[in-house]
Structure formats: C-alpha cells, structure tokens
Simulated assay, not measured.
Amino acid sequence: MKIDAFCHLLPAEYAKRLFAIDDSPVARNIQKRVSGVPALVDMDERFRIMDEFGPDYRQIVNSAAPPLEDLGPAARTVELARIANDGMAELTRDNPDRFAGFCAAVSLSDVDAAIAEAERAFDELGAVGVQIYTHVNGGPMDQERFFPFYEAVAARGDKMIQVHPCRDSSWSDYKTEARSKFEIWWTLGWEYDLSAFMSRLVFSGVFERLPDIKILIHHGGAMIPHFAGRIGPGWDQLGSRTPADQAEDIAGYPLTERPIDAFRRFYVDTAYFGAGDAMRTAIKFFGVDHTLFASDTPFDPEKGPGYIRSTIANLEEMDIIDDADRAEIYHGNVSRLLGL
C-alpha cells in the first residue's frame, strides 16, 4: 500500500467558482497555471494516471493553491472553503479505492470561521486534516490570533495540519527591485517561506503549548534539514549576533529544549521532485517515523505521473532504509497519525 499524503486537485464546483473570479491578480495567475494541468479537474484523466501505480496506490488530496485568503474578501473566501470541502468530501466518498482522505480548505482571514469550517469538515465530511499556508495576507503565522485555530485542530488528536508555501513575483529578490525574476520566488522563495514558517512556530513554543499538534511540512521540511549546522549549533548561540538595541527580536521565546530538537517534531513529506540525495538528508534529519510518502502530483512536467514515479524510485533505491522503513513511510506512519 502506498498512500500519497500531499496531492492537489480542484473539485468541479470550486474550480468553476475559482475561474469566475475576475478581480484578483492571484486568481488570474492560478487560472493560467492550472488550465494546463487536466488532472486537477478531470478525474478520468487523474484515475488513468493513478492506474500506472497499481491498485494499492491511493491519495490524500487537498485543494490546489492559491491560499483562499488571497482570493478576495473574507465572506467570499469562507464560502469558497465550504464549496471546496463539499467537493473533496464527495470525491473521497465516491472513490474510496482512489482517495484515502482529504485535508480541508480554510480561510484564516476569519479565524473563528476557519475553526467552524474545520470542525464541520471533520465531523460532517470526514476530513483527515486541514491545509494552511505559510502566511495570511503576508503576515506571520505565529501571531497569537491563530493559536485558537491550532488548538482546535490539535484537540482532535488524529487530525493533521498540512502546510503549503505561498509567494508570488511581487516578493522581490532584492530590496532595490519591484519583482522577483526568473521565478526565483517559486524555486527558492517557497522553500524559504516553509523554513521561516517552521522557525517562527518553533520559537513561538507551539510544541510546548500544544504537544499533541501534528504539522506536516511540504517539500521535506524545505531548507531545515540541509542547514542542520545552523539550526543546531548556530541557534544554540541565539543572541550572539543581535545588537543590544534589537534585543526584543529574540526575547520571550518559551523553549525548554534545543531549537533543533523542536524542529524534529514536525512531520515532513517526500515531495522532492526526484532529488533523492535531498530526500535522504531529510529522512536522516527528521527520522523515518516523521516522514510521509507524498509526491505533490500533478504539477510535474508530465502533468501527473512524473513526481509519483520518481519519488517511488528514490525510496526504493535509498540505502539508509530497509523494507520495513519503506512500509512505514509509504503507509504506516500516515495510517497511525490519522487513524486510517
């Protein structure tokens, strides 16, 4: 059994509403991108792709980017979350041999509404978790106003929070420029976003305040495992690089453990797009027990099967794990986490 724990799609009614939005630059950008990926909306095409990987391959799905918060006023985005979740629930219910579950969409523009929608998705629709992004309207996710949301999900025990990166070309590469060039905002910027999200949550003490919270970071934990020397010995010296007149920037964090140990409390996936050496580093850093098989389908150059195929190949050839470890990564860990 292989349960692909981080896959994207667009339910039909949600896609219809998304493509009708004409007053959001973010919506226009995603309309262009997803129009060339049929498996996001065409389930016959999606199932044809999935057939390559046999009857024991299933997916946990979520709604494809962008963040709902970027699609307009809160009233609209709350409605879009509901439409997306109803659609994903229907697809999961009608195709249990294809989909092991879905992670609900929420709009954190209205935290109370996001909590209510998550609880509806859990209780009425059977969602196995929720998907959030690395910022809300450009703001950090360690703000205290978001903690009731984290607390509500953590209290469910067997639900996870999937975290997806987000930025666009308006996040420039240099202060002197207005826009990012050469899609650096995506290739490198998304990985920085994930790493900054993780760091701010670690120093907020989220794992000390909510020890039962389950947070799955996309793209294998991004930069964190590859900069373990800076995360470990580097952050063990927190404050040594900060001038006295900026002391408030490092004050108040409630950690009772080394920062590097707190980072290892995150769960990560294997969505490395075929970069086996990078995946190997992430597995060594986070451990087999915190690694979930995921491909990020269908955003590969083949529009569906490419990243699934290369991710499986990476895991099969990796010499630091054995068959029992592979079984845990493929399905054991996610099954225990979510009570599948």
Rank of each mutant, 00 (worst) to 15 (best):
Q162A: 15
D44M: 07
K175R: 15
V334L: 12
H219A: 13
G205K: 07
A196Q: 07
D296L: 05
W171T: 14
L238I: 15
V163Q: 02
P96M: 04
E328A: 09
A74S: 15
I21R: 07
W185F: 15
E13H: 03
P233V: 14
T176Q: 13
G101I: 07
G339Y: 12
D173N: 14
V153R: 09
R230D: 12
P225S: 02
L238F: 11
F266H: 07
A116V: 05
I184Y: 14
Q31V: 10
M1F: 04
D42E: 03
A244K: 08
T134K: 09
R280P: 06
A275W: 11
A5I: 05
S24V: 09
G220V: 10
I260R: 08
K175D: 13
P67S: 06
R82W: 01
F147R: 01
V136A: 00
G138E: 03
L125N: 04
P67T: 05
T281F: 07
C166Q: 15
R82Y: 01
F227A: 14
G287Y: 06
I224N: 11
F299T: 10
A294G: 11
D319R: 14
P165M: 11
R280H: 11
L10D: 00
I21F: 09
F286W: 10
S24D: 12
W186R: 14
R46F: 10
V206I: 07
R98W: 00
G129I: 08
R82Q: 04
T291H: 00
S107L: 11
V111A: 02
I217L: 14
G189E: 12
L337M: 15
N29E: 06
P165T: 14
Q143V: 12
L194A: 13
V288L: 00
D142A: 14
V130F: 13
I49H: 13
G205A: 03
K214E: 01
M198A: 08
L71W: 02
E183P: 00
R280T: 12
L255N: 01
A327C: 02
H164L: 03
D4L: 09
D44W: 06
F99T: 04
M318N: 06
T281C: 11
L216F: 10
V61H: 05
F122H: 09
R33T: 09
A20V: 00
C166L: 13
E191M: 15
R265K: 15
I215V: 01
Y150F: 06
R258Y: 09
N62S: 15
M198V: 10
W185S: 13
Y150V: 00
T242K: 05
D323T: 01
L68Q: 06
A262C: 15
G287M: 02
P96N: 02
R209T: 09
E191Q: 15
F99C: 08
H290Q: 04
A271K: 03
Y174W: 13
D56F: 12
D94R: 10
F207T: 01
R241M: 08
D70V: 07
S63Y: 04
D158R: 15
Q59V: 08
I115S: 03
E302L: 13
R120E: 02
N85G: 12
A74L: 15
L18M: 06
G205S: 05
Y150P: 02
A84Y: 01
P259N: 06
R336N: 11
D236E: 14
A114Y: 05
I312Q: 04
P305N: 12
D4F: 07
A155L: 10
M141H: 05
V163P: 01
L10R: 03
I21Q: 08
L210T: 02
I49Y: 06
